[in-house]
Amino acid sequence: MPTLLLVRHGRSTANTSGLLAGRTPGIFLDDHGTAQAAALPGRLAPIPLAAAVHSPLERCRQTLAPLTRARPELPLYAEERIGECDYGDWTGRKLAELADEPLMATVQQHPSAAAFPGGETMRGMQNRAVEAVRDWNERIGREHGADATYLMCSHGDIIKALVADALGMHLDLFQRIHVEPCSVTVIRYTPLRPFLLRLGDTGDLGSLAPREEGAAQGPPAAGSDGTAAVGGGA
């Protein structure tokens, strides 16, 4: 089964102004986020990608723009199901104001019970995102082979929810996970279990590149055959 690179979009103007952007149109990367996106092709250069899938929102499209310019042959697809959570009436409000809302305690401590007024439930958000990944895993594996790697550019809560699913964690624990803007989280899916290879990585990704034939190799990479590396692996 394929390996998935989950890229959170670069830092946005909403991030720096403390707004809960949600699905608000017209939210773009700030200058720092633009620089983060510009560095992404270099970070991913050693990794062959079968496809790039993205949330339809502008900040995700903008994050992938330098990558698609560097790799014009890379197939690019929009996927509604990995779009930002629908925060309903909370959309566009200051996070500092929302901290006093009674619902915030549920969002923080019991997110599986959280339902945003006029929006969706956090449980529904996770379910649609997981379903999207399952569908794309099947498609990428069918079209590009079981060893293929592909990328999804999405949002913080979506990525955290997907990591929780991969780790077999209840959604109520997903607030313990943190991913920085333009970080890369890597999940290798196998028939037995998923393996979390990176979480919120903002540095070099060269060790994820395929090993060259004939090169000296240690034990199989963790998760390459669905078996965990006993003792921690190489």
Rank of each mutant, 00 (worst) to 15 (best):
S12D: 02
G124S: 14
Y189F: 15
A39N: 07
D31H: 13
G26Y: 07
L205W: 06
E79V: 08
T13R: 09
A166E: 08
Y189N: 14
R176L: 10
E58N: 07
G203D: 11
D201W: 02
S112N: 08
A114T: 14
M152H: 01
P220D: 05
L20F: 03
A70H: 10
W136F: 05
H9V: 00
L19E: 11
S154T: 14
L199G: 04
T149W: 00
R198S: 06
G42E: 14
D165R: 02
D157G: 11
I82T: 08
H144G: 00
A78P: 02
T68D: 08
R193L: 07
E180L: 10
R69N: 03
Y87H: 13
G124H: 12
A146P: 04
G124T: 13
G92P: 05
G92A: 09
A129G: 06
A38S: 09
P194F: 04
G26F: 07
F28Y: 01
P102H: 10
C153K: 10
Y189L: 12
H110C: 09
S17A: 15
M1F: 09
W90S: 11
A45Y: 03
L197M: 02
A35W: 04
R139W: 06
F116T: 12
L67C: 12
T68L: 15
H54Q: 13
E138C: 06
L205Y: 05
L205T: 06
G141L: 08
L57G: 04
G145H: 08
P66A: 13
A70V: 08
G88C: 01
A166T: 04
D201Q: 05
G145V: 08
R188Y: 02
G141E: 12
A14R: 09
G141V: 00
A221F: 09
L76P: 02
R123K: 12
N137E: 13
G124I: 01
T185G: 05
A14G: 09
I140E: 01
T190H: 12
G10S: 09
A21Y: 00
H9F: 00
A14H: 03
H54N: 07
R11M: 12
E120I: 03
L5Q: 04
A52I: 02
R211M: 11
R211A: 15
G119D: 05
A50C: 05
S55I: 03
D147E: 14
V186M: 04
Q36C: 10
P117A: 13
V107F: 15
I47Q: 04
G233S: 10
R176A: 12
G156C: 05
A221P: 11
T190P: 10
D147R: 13
R59E: 06
A38E: 14
A96S: 15
A105L: 09
G33I: 02
D86H: 12
R198T: 06
G206W: 06
P111G: 10
A146M: 04
S183D: 04
R69C: 07
L98W: 10
K160M: 13
Y87V: 09
D31N: 14
